[in-house]
């Protein structure tokens, strides 16, 4: 890693990271604040029971039983995925594909640092941002639990597990985005590859959940490895998280190695 590059790149990313972090934190607090007023509402519970189970599953809504299930369903089931995926794809693009495409990578590579060092540093900046966003979200959850919702305590361990599992999901997504950015000459191509695959994964997961016949589709989706609703109910599985970790490690390594060996159009 190169410290100067890390600092400067992180500084350039700060605004974006703060934006995503506050957005995420704000939404969690909002969801937590709404919860008490909905928890006791019979109408909503009745309404939820009437919805087809596939539909509820599709959006990770497991129930309104407690605050954690509510947050898991209302935030981690949908908006969190969207927010995190967009961050991963765009940040990887800004940190690697754009400097290659526009040629500014030439200045960084003209310094006596190996390509591995530079790619590794950029990857670290990307992951630091991701960690910051997830940490802020988790902190917001805990804070909301402490100050806003007094009568129904958050299951802290499971909430933490959701965040760790979420981080691993985005570790994998940012990993393959980083890899595509490392192999592409063109910023737009990198963006369409990583964006396209992510949308595809998400659709597989959604269709698989909605229709039982197509449930096998979920095996082809990275999003199936992240089930906030199940974790909230205490049915956490370790294997999918390990898979996410492995996908992340492999794609980051592949990205760094490819970047080190390829011709660069600088």
């Amino acid at each position: 890693m190169n410290v100067s590059l890390y600092k400067q790149m992180l500084k350039a990313q700060t605004k974006t990271i703060i934006g995503y972090s506050t957005g995420s934190a704000f939404y969690i607090v909002l969801v937590a604040a709404i919860y008490p007023s909905l928890a006791d509402s019979k109408i909503i519970n009745h309404y939820l029971q009437q919805l087809p189970s596939g539909f509820l599953k599709a959006f990770n809504i497991t129930g309104m039983g407690n605050l954690l299930e509510f947050i898991a369903g209302e935030y981690y089931g949908l908006l969190f995925l969207l927010l995190g995926s967009i961050y991963c794809i765009t940040a990887a693009n800004q940190l690697l594909a754009r400097p290659i495409d526009r040629g500014s990578m030439a200045y960084l590579l003209a310094t006596p640092n190996s390509r591995q060092t530079i790619a590794f540093t950029q990857a670290l900046v990307l992951l630091t941002g991701l960690a910051a966003i997830i940490l802020t979200s988790a902190a917001a959850g805990f804070a909301a639990d402490a100050w806003l919702v007094t009568n129904d305590a958050l299951h802290q361990k499971r909430f933490l597990a959701i965040n760790v599992s979420g981080f691993l999901l985005f570790f994998a997504i940012s990993g393959y985005s980083f890899f595509f950015c490392a192999i592409a000459n063109d910023e737009k191509r990198a963006l369409s590859l990583s964006g396209g695959i992510t949308v595809l994964f998400y659709s597989f997961d959604l269709i698989g959940k909605l229709t039982e016949k197509a449930e096998w589709l979920r095996y082809g989706s990275i999003f199936a490895a992240f089930e906030p609703g199940a974790i909230a109910q205490g049915q956490a599985e370790w294997l999918p998280s390990c898979l996410l970790l492995a996908i992340g490690v492999i794609s980051y390594t592949a990205g760094i190695v490819t970047f080190s060996k390829r011709d660069l159009p600088l």
């Binding site: 500014s104 030439a106 200045y107 003209a110």
Partner: peptide, 14 residues
């Protein structure tokens, strides 16, 4: 080596 690239493209936001 000191190098001046032919295309002027700097990292953004600095």
């Amino acid at each position: 080596v000191g190098y001046l690239p032919g295309e002027i493209a700097f990292p953004e936001g600095m």
